[in-house]
């Protein structure tokens, strides 16, 4: 890939972020704000002596513990953000190519020296690599503000807070695991990404209804044409989050380079190729 292509691709990613900043920045910011306000309200309800004991207990509990080993514990705190990211990804993927046709911006982009393949790839990279970065950055700020606040409270109650440093390190390491999990989730769900993009590029109205309707219809069709249920089996066999979430750095290689993951990417590629070809029907 030459320098011009890289600049072109970067411009496409910038366009995606600017067009969907409410989904990628606004939604996690709102969630972080709500969580922060809820925490302030909860802390104000707890009596001071119990709060001081809790801070001291946490500091003693985490003091000297390896952040790498404690990191998976903090991944629980990221669940609301991951949930919002999944919903945002669904909304983004089902609307993105459909919106391009509806507002006729597809004609503008097709008149530019940008191929349909690059446009579709930019949307996949946006949801798999770029969007999780914003979520992680906002989570980091939330952790930082929370830690500073707890440290100030601890100092004001005159309790030992040295161990809170280890707690913060574990929280930061957990963010790397959350980001890796978001990336491997996108790879694992590549068939779903391809499916949503295909129907986003295909349908003239209500793309979500098309995507959902044909998804369930395909189960019946497979049973009717081939007399088998491999499609339903395949979907069911890939539905366990433990197959793609990463809880330790040792799991990264194994999670990405395994048969199920690579076959999923292959199947997803068929659907993504369909979405790229479908872009030629701009009406």
């Amino acid at each position: 890939m030459d320098k011009f292509s890289l600049l072109q691709f970067r411009a496409l990613l910038t366009r995606e972020v600017r067009e969907h900043r409410n989904l990628f920045i606004g939604a996690p910011l709102l969630l972080a704000g709500l969580i922060f306000i809820a925490n302030v309200w909860l802390m104000s309800m707890i009596p001071e002596d119990i709060l001081a004991d809790a801070i001291e207990y946490a500091a003693i509990l985490f003091d000297g513990l390896s952040p790498l080993e404690m990191a998976p514990l903090f991944m629980i705190l990221a669940i609301p953000f991951m949930g919002v990211l999944y919903i945002v990804a669904l909304i983004y993927l089902i609307n993105t190519l459909y919106q391009d046709r509806r507002e006729l911006s597809i004609l503008f982009w097709q008149s530019m020296p940008v191929s349909n393949l690059k446009t579709v790839l930019s949307k996949i990279v946006t949801i798999a690599v770029v969007a999780p970065l914003f979520y992680i950055a906002i989570l980091f700020v939330l952790y930082l503000v929370g830690m500073v606040w707890v440290a100030i409270l601890g100092l004001s109650y005159d309790v030992q807070i040295a161990g809170l440093g280890y707690m913060f390190l574990a929280a930061v390491v957990s963010l790397i695991l959350v980001y890796l999990s978001a990336f491997t989730t996108a790879l694992w769900l590549m068939p779903s990404i391809g499916w949503l993009l295909l129907f986003s590029a295909f349908s003239k109205k209500t793309p979500l209804l098309w995507a959902g309707g044909v998804f369930f219809l395909s189960f019946f069709l497979e049973d009717f044409i081939f007399g088998t249920q491999f499609l339903a089996n395949w979907v069911e066999s890939r539905a366990n989050p433990a197959q793609y979430l990463i809880f330790s750095f040792r799991d990264v290689f194994e999670s990405i380079f395994n048969y199920d993951m690579l076959f999923g990417i292959l199947v997803g590629s068929i659907l993504i190729a369909g979405a790229v070809l479908m872009r030629r029907f701009a009406d």
Binding site: L221, E222, I225, F230, W234, L266
Partner: peptide, 8 residues
């Protein structure tokens, strides 16, 4: 569907 059925 063919890819999934054959692989299955």
């Amino acid at each position: 569907m063919l890819a999934l059925v054959v692989e299955g």
